[in-house]
Simulated assay, not measured.
Amino acid sequence: MARPPRYDETQLLDTAVRIAADAGPAAVTMSAIARASGVPNGSIYHRFPQRLALLAELWLRTVEHFQTGYFAALQSDGDPLRAGAAAARHVVAWSRQNPREAAVLLHGPQSFGRDEWPEEYARRADDGNKRVLEAVAELAERGGATAELEVDRVMLAVIELPLAVVRRYLRAGRPLPPHAEELAERCAVDLLA
């Protein structure tokens, strides 16, 4: 029976998140992870045969972690106004609870080499993006928004504005203020009403 790996993927990715949040995606290298985690380079390459695979998994794990709660918020209530408000609130609350991961997401997938990811990672990213767009379009439909302008308004309310609230503070290196969730929720409700 093979012995379990001494260093697991979670440990390596958690270290990569810390590096990316503190110094940016370009700082996430195999050697930087080895230095920060104490894991030998060979063990890192055993898990991730190339840096692009590591960067892709770092981005995807982070965005999928965020999306789990986001999808739940979008479907949390039969009333589309309350569901949209919950989704906007989730963006800020999740970012408050996961500031390093939020910092990673604020860089965007292109900063993690998105255009060069191996096919399996690119497909996973595309599938995730498609799910978000479908979920937001479904919310818009539930609220009676069918015209392109109305759907764009819903996208703005439940994606772009809450991200702007988070971006404003995290990019300045400041903690989110206590009223940030309420601000995102109110903006979403105003746009969706």
Rank of each mutant, 00 (worst) to 15 (best):
R3E: 15
R6L: 05
T10Y: 08
L13P: 03
A16P: 00
R18V: 14
I19Y: 00
A21Q: 12
A26K: 05
A26N: 04
V28W: 04
S31L: 01
A32Y: 00
A32W: 01
R35W: 02
R35Y: 02
A36C: 05
G38H: 02
V39G: 08
P40F: 10
S43R: 04
I44E: 01
I44V: 11
Y45E: 09
F48N: 13
P49W: 03
Q50R: 03
R51W: 10
R51S: 06
L54S: 06
L54F: 13
A56D: 02
L58F: 07
W59R: 11
F66G: 03
F66Y: 15
G69L: 09
Y70F: 13
F71E: 15
A72V: 09
G78K: 01
D79G: 09
P80E: 07
G84K: 07
A86M: 12
H90S: 02
V91M: 10
V92A: 11
V92K: 10
W94I: 13
R96V: 06
Q97P: 00
Q97N: 07
P99V: 14
R100W: 08
R100Y: 11
L105P: 03
L105D: 01
L106E: 07
H107S: 07
F112W: 10
F112I: 13
G113E: 12
G113T: 06
R114P: 02
E116Y: 09
W117L: 12
W117Q: 08
P118N: 13
E120S: 14
R123A: 14
R124S: 14
R124C: 14
A125C: 12
D126G: 15
D127L: 11
N129G: 15
V132H: 00
L133E: 09
L133C: 11
L133V: 13
A135W: 07
A135N: 11
V136P: 03
A137G: 01
L139A: 12
A140H: 10
G143N: 05
E148M: 12
L149Y: 01
E150M: 06
V154H: 04
M155F: 13
M155W: 09
V158K: 12
L163T: 10
V166D: 03
R167P: 01
R167N: 04
R167G: 03
L170R: 02
P177L: 03
H179Q: 06
A184F: 07
E185K: 05
R186F: 05
A188Y: 07
V189H: 03
D190A: 09
L191F: 03
A193Y: 12
A193L: 06
